[in-house]
Design a protein around this nucleic acid. Structure first.
Lengths: 143, 143
DNA sequence: TCATTGTTTTAGAATTATTCTAATTCTAAT
DNA sequence: ATTAGAATTAGAATAATTCTAAAACAATGA
């Protein structure tokens, strides 16, 4: 039994259900991208994901990787983490957590503890509601 | 008494001293950029600053605005705040504080209180040292 | 079943933020 | 003044991201 897929067959149903549960229409490209992205918990850039998908032998354009990641973000499947102007990461873990970013290695590491301060509505600017809290702690290798 | 400068003469000495105190060589372009940037506390993108400088009648290239902002960041005169892939703000206030970002208006608003969690060395990944804590609370207009 | 129409998705092309590098300007020494 | 080296500038190149026109798909009716 052969397969061109980059993930074991047992995962196919899981990925399909994941997309379906989030009201995302199934397409060949979206499956390929999701297979690679959700193979494990990871932080990847659009470029890295594009390369990873390409390495499975699949043909998907970079624009589609961007479009699909944007869709996944809107649908709550992945979370965007903005590190700097040329490093937007996509985190396959959407649970509420924060990140260490190692400026020397480029690694993004989860902060397990919920150490973020708690904000209540009255803390926010008048007429606004909280969307999301982004906490990134930049660290460097202590040489 | 006339002046092509976009800031009152009383500020000239202040700006010059500011750059000098941070070991930044004075040049025509850097003065023009700093005059506009430090006219008041503000959060601006490189593009906005470029336009603002241009509106004073001065001729400075956009590349120089980018290069100069990068230099100012390295010298600790301004702080970079990464909001998303096409919105890097430069904050003329370098004191330790965080931001509300209104996704509807694009406004960046200081959080006065030091509500960020306190991290000690042992909280950090092994072999790393803290660089900076970036906390951005995204809010939206509650319609 | 097969057009027809409207909707969704894809990906090449265009855009735009940012960086790079070659040319220019400045500084210091002779 | 002239040269040599360092610092600075800005036009050109790059690369991340978005746009849009074409392609694929879905739904409807003859």
């Amino acid at each position: 039994m052969e397969s061109k897929s980059n993930s074991p067959m047992v995962d196919r149903a899981r990925i399909d259900k994941l997309l379906d549960d989030h009201n995302i229409n199934l397409t060949r490209q979206r499956r390929l991208i999701a297979d690679t992205l959700f193979a494990r918990h990871q932080h990847v850039t659009a470029e890295q994901l594009f390369e990873a998908v390409k390495n499975t032998g699949a043909r998907v354009s970079k624009a589609t990787v961007y479009n699909t990641l944007g869709l996944f973000v809107r649908k709550g499947l992945v979370r965007e983490v903005f590190i700097d102007s040329s490093r937007t990461f996509y985190d396959s873990n959407t649970s509420h957590h924060h990140h260490f970013y190692n400026v020397d290695t480029g690694d993004l590491i989860d902060i397990k503890e919920r150490l973020a301060p708690h904000f209540v509505d009255s803390d926010l600017p008048a007429g606004t509601a909280m969307e999301i809290v982004d906490l990134v702690i930049r660290v460097r290798n202590s040489s």
